[in-house]
Simulated assay, not measured.
Amino acid sequence: MELTAVVNGLKALKTVSQTVTIYTDSKYVARGVNEWLPDWLARGWQTASKKPVANRDLWEAVQALLQIHTVTVKWIPRYQNAEADGLAQEARLNHGMTPMTKPTQQTTHLMIAGSRDATAQMLDYARRAVRRAHEKGFAILVGDNPKGVDMVVVRECRRLQIPVIVAGVGNFPRNGECKHGTYVKVHRDTYRASGGHLLHRYTVRDRWMVDQAQMGLFVWNGDSPGTKAGYNYATQRGKDAHLINFSAEVGS
């Protein structure tokens, strides 16, 4: 469907903070992005008639992508979109698959998260994870915490001159060293609880990172609720998530 094509197209962009104009003959997509999405967020993903928003998972993905790109969606009549439709049909005939399912060469994004109260062993593990990710060609996402695992990840990226995407909720990162990477401010109303009320701002940030990444590495001290909650959300979203539990070391 057209909405899936929008998500896949924006995910295929190689860098963040791009300016994109999307032309579509789908009024559902155009009005959804331009008119309905802010209201759905305000109502906790409910329509004006208090019904659940259809295709919520796709709209959540669109909302997350709108936080990292400047996107304009313009509706055009179907007859003006005939050339694009023809190319899509040709692709189906020639390759036996739709453009939405055709494999693409995309960068794998790895989210690294962890406890602020981290031991030396945990921090060393995080440094090694950054180096392994760099060797595999992964892009790294991390939060803007000014201490603990997040801080070490940013420092290691800077030392190795690895690009890093840093996510936070303020206008500026709490960790000044995050200036080395690309900083993304995640708006608090990007996600809401099932009842419609706002989630904790760092819960929103962590969920946004999970949804941008294909893989997640969670370095846990056995106590931090935020790290464990991020891991749980990643598994719920079907991500390739790994919880590295250092609780035995902490208790020794």
Results as ranks from 00 to 15, higher is better:
residue 171 N to Y: 09
residue 148 G to Y: 07
residue 191 Y to T: 08
residue 163 P to M: 09
residue 166 V to N: 03
residue 144 D to G: 01
residue 143 G to M: 07
residue 142 V to F: 02
residue 134 H to K: 15
residue 194 S to D: 13
residue 200 H to N: 15
residue 167 A to R: 08
residue 177 E to C: 01
residue 181 G to I: 05
residue 206 D to W: 00
residue 149 V to H: 04
residue 184 V to H: 11
residue 205 R to H: 03
residue 152 V to L: 02
residue 166 V to H: 02
residue 142 V to S: 07
residue 121 Q to N: 12
residue 156 E to V: 05
residue 168 G to C: 03
residue 185 K to N: 12
residue 129 A to D: 05
residue 161 Q to S: 13
residue 132 R to V: 14
residue 188 R to D: 12
residue 161 Q to R: 14
residue 139 A to L: 12
residue 146 P to L: 09
residue 156 E to W: 02
residue 133 A to Y: 03
residue 108 T to N: 09
residue 150 D to R: 06
residue 117 D to N: 15
residue 132 R to E: 15
residue 191 Y to G: 04
residue 194 S to P: 00
residue 152 V to N: 00
residue 203 T to C: 08
residue 116 R to S: 07
residue 139 A to P: 00
residue 123 L to C: 10
residue 186 V to P: 00
residue 167 A to S: 13
residue 107 T to P: 00
residue 162 I to C: 06
residue 192 R to C: 03
residue 156 E to R: 02
residue 124 D to P: 03
residue 153 V to S: 02
residue 170 G to T: 11
residue 186 V to R: 04
residue 170 G to I: 04
residue 179 K to Y: 07
residue 185 K to V: 10
residue 124 D to F: 00
residue 138 F to N: 10
residue 110 L to C: 03
residue 113 A to I: 12
residue 127 R to A: 12
residue 129 A to N: 06
residue 112 I to R: 02
residue 116 R to N: 12
residue 109 H to R: 15
residue 155 R to H: 12
residue 112 I to E: 05
residue 146 P to H: 10
residue 142 V to H: 01
residue 123 L to A: 07
residue 176 G to F: 10
residue 109 H to K: 14
residue 155 R to G: 09
